[in-house]
Write a protein that binds this DNA or RNA. Structure first.
Lengths: 258, 258
DNA sequence: CGTTTAATTGACATTATTCAACCCGGGTGG
DNA sequence: CCACCCGGGTTGAATAATGTCAATTAAACG
């Protein structure tokens, strides 16, 4: 994260808090924690490497704006994208937990993040209960997304896989109130889809063609027109349960007074 | 978890504590927590369903003995195994966190687990710091394993994938001191490998044949002879970093006195 | 032993990859 | 303003990887 510029906003944006509090009920406690720990934003421009595999890292990033890819380069020029982070997602928790990162973090668009310094995890966990539960939740959800990706890569064909990831992105954008029409503005090119889905670029083209021929969508540069989202979900066998919109009720945190 | 028999051992076995404390340095605190929360063992027999997808669940299981598969049935009779739990691993944390499970948990061998009741997660996190950090660590590591599986499924061919999962299992067994020779006793059949690797059974057969012809291993029912583990690692592009043998040093928890 | 489950083999179909050529649209510099 | 260029995207043909089906063998077990 070399060339960063500090944001002009000194405090956590309201909209980000809204996004997060949709997930975490203890708004005051979490908000207080975040204001204390993530007091300034950092801007990164599209294409920047935020974190490289193997690099040591000491902060967690809370995404406020933009798309970030977590990816690994494999021997022979290949690349696998393991997940896509959107506003409201945390980045780099594993890198902090385990000292070094297994993956590269790449800003796919211009990005705004709130870095949270983590000296020792236990101190953090003790003193900032709101953030601790947020991270626990985020990591659990991340794990669910990855498990679903494993299912896709292992047991769904190209058409199902592509339809599935599009459905996932649609629902995740809706969750953070970023999608209001059938026009899905997506900064990914077909090569990115290929590296998410474990396919060749050319096969991704053909698979988009198939979905187009089925009347489900229309692919354009920088976007997809969603013509039949239910059809997409049907063909993908998409069930949004794994996105875990909320914690179980009795796991919701109590006010910090305790 | 219908037909369970209660273990005759009333307390956590020493060997399990040893396994876990290899990962978690704060032995006394964790041990105290575990003794309090996981005071009796439960035995399950091979083939039993421990937990079904969609089922509500209120306890985390700490595996003491045996192999457990976390899997999902997909439309059309298929199955994807997302991971394999070995002694020392925690099960069902996500199911507890999110109220219901996304996956089935199947005992592949006879299994002994220590159930840990979780009323509310925040209480647990507050009162049992040792366990809280263990779960945080376990979930993070789980996430790393899944990310690596995504890389395998997305960008490695059948031979690399098979070699890779064998390497992973070998190293994980060594970590818990369960492998002392070149004989790898493994309760998985080729169909299980197929459903882990996203391949057909027949292709798994062919791929074992290829590894055999390369002089790397010999497959038998109930086991694999490891003839050239370094060769396997080489062909798989296996780097054990993602297994995260230990937490970063300054993340190690302090005594609970605080 | 005979039965059952798992592994194996061969022939063939399908899916996805690779390579090569071409298209298209938006910028840029002359 | 236009010609060119370049990053994406598309298409077709040939090839490689993996899947399916059907039949056979081998090992394990009562």
């Amino acid at each position: 994260m070399d060339k960063v510029t500090y944001g002009d906003e000194l405090f956590m944006t309201k909209s980000l808090l809204a996004k997060i509090s949709g997930f975490f009920p203890l708004e005051q406690e979490l908000e207080a924690d975040l204001r204390k720990l993530a007091f300034r934003s950092v801007k990164l421009s599209a294409g920047q490497t935020i974190l490289s595999a193997g690099e040591k890292y000491k902060q967690v990033l809370l995404v406020d704006e933009g798309w970030v890819l977590r990816q690994r380069h494999v021997g022979g020029g290949g690349r696998q994208i393991v997940n896509v982070a959107l506003p409201g997602d945390f980045l780099g928790f594993n890198a902090v937990l385990f000292d070094t990162s297994d993956f590269d973090l790449i800003a796919k668009t211009d990005v705004v993040v709130y870095p949270i310094e983590i000296q020792t995890i236990d101190k953090l966990m003790e003193r900032h209960r709101g953030l601790a539960s947020a991270l626990t939740w985020a990591n659990g959800r991340e794990e669910s997304l990855l498990a679903e990706r494993v299912v896709s890569l292992g047991r769904r064909d190209a058409t199902e896989r592509l339809a599935h990831i599009i459905c996932e992105i649609v629902v995740r954008l809706q969750l953070i109130d970023r999608l209001h029409s059938t026009r899905l503005n997506i900064p990914l090119i077909q090569e990115d889809f290929a590296d998410i889905l474990g396919l060749s670029v050319i096969h991704v083209t053909r698979t988009f063609r198939r979905l187009t021929d089925l009347g489900l969508l229309a692919y354009r540069r920088n976007g997809i027109d969603l013509l039949d989202i239910d059809g997409l979900k049907r063909i993908a066998g998409f069930d949004d349960a794994y996105l875990h919109f909320s914690l179980r009720k009795d796991a919701r945190m109590r006010p910090s007074a305790s």
